[in-house]
Design a protein around this nucleic acid. Structure first.
Lengths: 156, 156
DNA sequence: AATAAATAGATGTATATACATTCAATATTA
DNA sequence: TAATATTGAATGTATATACATCTATTTATT
């Protein structure tokens, strides 16, 4: 839809950027939207949203260990107080399951089901393929971006 | 809340990045969320959401010329089919007004009210101040980010 | 031990997103 | 000109976000 647009000036139909820093801010916001749009289209084939996929990936990282809702939330790319409801939808699809915590009755333990693992495997392959073919980035450039973004967020 | 976290490893509580490109992708998504969170907190003081502010800024760029809904939409950072409803809320707050297009009866013309201009002035000052004090970025680094992000999106 | 404070999770509301559909107006073309 | 296609905007639905609030449980304080 808007995906083949490249230059920020074209993407936002504007060249009124105060300075390079202002432009970089908008460029980061726009690029994030662009990445999410591309990925979401692929995830949709598997009936998953971006956030649902993020939760599944986090659970995969600890598998087969269960995780409590809070631990999932603080690992998400976009922190959200909505984790219980994202999990609700994954439970309905039987991709994860809930269990009571034996140590702390306030906590809920979440874990991937076999079905969740299966879908995640296929989906991740597809998403990785898509990213490799869409995101044009040399390792050295990526490393530079990583340094600069962390600097931007206030390197301490 | 999570705002003082800097390194991506800390922010996502993970160091399982496939490679620098994968990490850069997550870093861009996380940084965009971080920027939006900071800005939204400031905008909230003025009763505005991030998207509402974006629409007001776009209208300001063409002021006093009116803009149709489609033109506003394609200039937004996050393209959305939801522009009519964002405008609805701005109309309720009397920050913008709708008018019929004399040329094409399908179009709606939107323009800033005096109240909209006033709020936008104050808000923009505050947001700029906030950004200057929060986003640590030299002009040269910002320029590098701009080049690399546009390269990433597929420089043609 | 009794009370107060903090925590984990769930829930409610307004707004936003993604996507499909609808409707009227305009443009195309046969 | 009549029929068809396209367009601009609005609307409907499921999901997500941001934020406040509520409940149950655990921890800390006195």
């Amino acid at each position: 839809m808007y995906i083949c647009i490249v230059k920020l000036e074209q993407a936002l139909q504007s060249n009124k950027f105060k300075n390079e820093v202002h432009k970089a801010t908008l460029n980061i916001l726009y690029t994030a939207w662009w990445l999410k749009t591309i990925m979401s289209a692929e995830l949709k084939e598997f009936g998953l949203t971006h956030e649902q996929y993020n939760v599944l990936r986090i659970l995969k990282g600890k598998y087969p260990t269960q995780m409590c809702v809070k631990d999932i939330g603080c690992r998400m790319i976009e922190k959200s107080s909505n984790v219980p409801r994202i999990i609700d939808r994954l439970v309905i699809k039987k991709l994860v399951k809930r269990a009571d915590s034996p140590v702390d009755k306030r906590e809920t333990f979440i874990s991937l089901t076999q079905s969740g693992i299966a879908i995640l495997g296929v989906t991740t392959n597809k998403v990785n393929e898509l990213m490799e073919s869409t995101v044009v980035m040399k390792s050295q450039d990526a490393a530079t971006i990583n340094v600069l973004l962390e600097k931007l967020r206030g390197s301490e």
